[in-house]
Amino acid sequence: MGTLVRGRRGAVAAALAAALGAGMAPTAAWAAAGPADGAGRTSKSAARDDGWRGDGLELGAADNSAVDAFLKQAEQAEKEISPRVRAAAVLSEAELIGFDQRLKSPDSLKRKVATSMKETPGQTVNQALDTMKDSVRYTLQWPDGKYTTGVTLAASLLSAWGDDSVKWSNTWDRPKGYKGINSAWREPRWGHAYEVQFHTPASKKAQLDTHRIYEEQRLPGTPPERVKELQAQQDAIFAAVPVPAGAAGLAAPGSRVPAGLSQPVPVPPPGAPAATKMPVG
């Protein structure tokens, strides 16, 4: 790993310094145009003073306000997270897929929260929000031959730069269903969780090909017989995905800093107000 890191360091040192250096907004050099400031993120379902409704689900006014506050925090946290994820992608030679969709839409998050509360009677909105790890999300992709080394390096960098690994779901060794690694991390400034998926081109394509199937499967009104049929369709698609050498053994990283790299945790601009964490859970 030391050789790989040293080979990448020179090419990105200036960009890392510009993006993560003291006294500069961390997204200045790295964050591409996209919905980072919430533009164009209005809900297409019924978001009114008395709550939110969509797809047969609903949130009351207070619960809807709590989700809106969580979404606002996600937008603020994204400014801290994206520079590190983009730097990890460059250093590990990953392709960063779908960066413009890194913020989950209000409708999608509210639908997910409402579904969670409906399926778990007595669950509060804050308890539901505490399980939401993908309000900010990224996908890193490598060719099969570079996948295991790339995942190891990218995850090690995120850990070394101060983000805590809070979930690591490696499904490469499962005989049926989804193939890939879904990880979740908690950034230190806001305490906000975010998701990073690690894919190969084939596993990402399978995910995209099964998305509509998955969405139908997870709707509360989908009959059990149809759920089984949809699962069988997904299993068949993922069964055709090759498993990269060593992928099944990939585990969450330790905290060791890769050789020769410092810890580029973003520093707030001078005079910036202290961050406060929104209580969740």
Rank of each mutant, 00 (worst) to 15 (best):
M1Q: 10
T3P: 04
R6D: 05
G10V: 02
G10D: 12
V12S: 05
A14F: 04
A14C: 01
A19V: 02
T27E: 10
A28T: 13
A29I: 01
W30H: 03
W30A: 15
W30F: 12
A32N: 05
G34Y: 06
D37W: 05
G40N: 08
G40K: 10
T42G: 13
S43Q: 07
D49P: 06
D50K: 13
R53L: 02
L57V: 12
A61C: 07
D63W: 08
A69S: 14
Q73V: 07
E75G: 12
Q76C: 05
Q76G: 03
E78W: 09
I81H: 05
R84Q: 13
R86W: 03
A89M: 07
G98R: 12
L103Q: 15
L103A: 08
S108P: 07
K110G: 06
K112Q: 15
E119F: 10
E119A: 14
D130A: 15
D134H: 14
V136E: 04
R137T: 09
Y138V: 02
T139C: 14
T139S: 14
W142Q: 11
D144C: 05
G145I: 00
G145M: 03
Y147M: 09
G150P: 07
T152P: 01
A154N: 09
A154W: 00
A155E: 03
A155I: 00
S156P: 01
L157G: 10
L157D: 10
S159G: 13
D164M: 01
D164P: 00
V166D: 07
N170K: 08
N170G: 08
N170V: 03
D173C: 03
K179G: 01
G180C: 06
S183V: 00
R186A: 00
R186D: 00
F198C: 01
F198D: 00
H199K: 15
P201M: 07
S203C: 05
K204G: 04
K205Q: 13
K205L: 08
Q207Y: 13
Y214T: 05
Y214S: 07
E215P: 01
E215K: 13
E216A: 13
Q217L: 14
Q217R: 15
P224D: 14
E225L: 06
K228V: 06
E229C: 09
L230D: 10
A232I: 02
A232L: 14
Q233F: 02
D235Y: 10
I237L: 14
A239C: 11
V241G: 11
P242E: 12
V243R: 15
A245M: 04
A252M: 00
S255P: 01
P258K: 03
A259G: 05
L261Y: 02
P264D: 11
V267T: 15
V267W: 05
V267P: 06
A272F: 11
A274V: 11
A275E: 08
M278P: 05
M278L: 15
P279Y: 04
G281Y: 06
